[in-house]
């Protein structure tokens, strides 16, 4: 083995691939790489403003297009509230008007109201009765259903589906019957 070959041999020893030498380019690159995540110092009030603006980008709670109507869905639930609110408004408006009647000169006694109702044609009477009866019937039926749910019963999906159909058709049919035949 001459001197030249010894030199080559030594060089080969140095550059023989090993775990360190193979990773040199990657290590050098790592120092050049930058990540997109930058931190910025903000004051608490600025942070609040940013959070508020981010929250405004979120979907709003009754996000109807995100609903899967085939899943368990208390479709009629909000109508209980709507009908209840409507009937409460009617009750409050009537009783406060009755209280104010002596001051305003209105006649809201039951006799006057009955006479006024008697003078209406049948269609108007039935229409007005339906307007009163359907919310009442719906609120009664679905309210009862909610009371049953509050006892932690009737949460199976087929039961809920059957209940939806029963409440809608039952309230409409019974309201029609009461408005037209009672």
């Amino acid at each position: 083995m001459n001197a030249q070959r010894i030199g080559v041999r030594a060089l080969q020893q140095v550059v023989r691939p090993n775990a360190f030498s193979q990773n040199i380019p990657r290590l050098m690159l790592a120092s050049l790489q930058t990540r997109g995540a930058a931190t910025v110092k903000v004051t608490p009030s600025e942070a609040q403003t940013i959070l508020a603006s981010q929250r405004l980008q979120r979907p709003v709670s009754p996000h109807l297009s995100a609903y899967d109507f085939k899943q368990t869905w208390f479709s009629a639930s909000v109508w209980t509230r709507i009908t209840g609110g409507g009937m409460t408004t009617a009750l409050y408006v009537f009783s406060i008007s009755y209280l104010a009647a002596p001051l305003t000169g209105w006649h809201l006694e039951s006799a006057t109201l009955a006479t006024a109702a008697a003078s209406l044609p049948f269609a108007a009477k039935a229409g007005l009765k339906l307007l009163v009866t359907w919310p009442f019937m719906f609120h009664l039926f679905n309210g009862t259903r909610h009371l049953v749910w509050d006892l932690a019963k009737g949460y199976k999906r087929p039961v809920i589906h059957a209940g939806n159909i029963a409440v809608w058709s039952g309230s409409l049919l019974s309201a029609l019957g009461i408005a037209c035949f009672l």
Binding site: Q48, A52, R55, P59, V60
Partner: peptide, 17 residues
């Protein structure tokens, strides 16, 4: 999904940090 503004979001009140 598209945005539905049924109830537009009110002012965003954040208490604390």
């Amino acid at each position: 999904s598209s945005r539905r503004s049924l109830l537009p979001p009110g002012p965003q009140v954040i208490k604390g940090t």
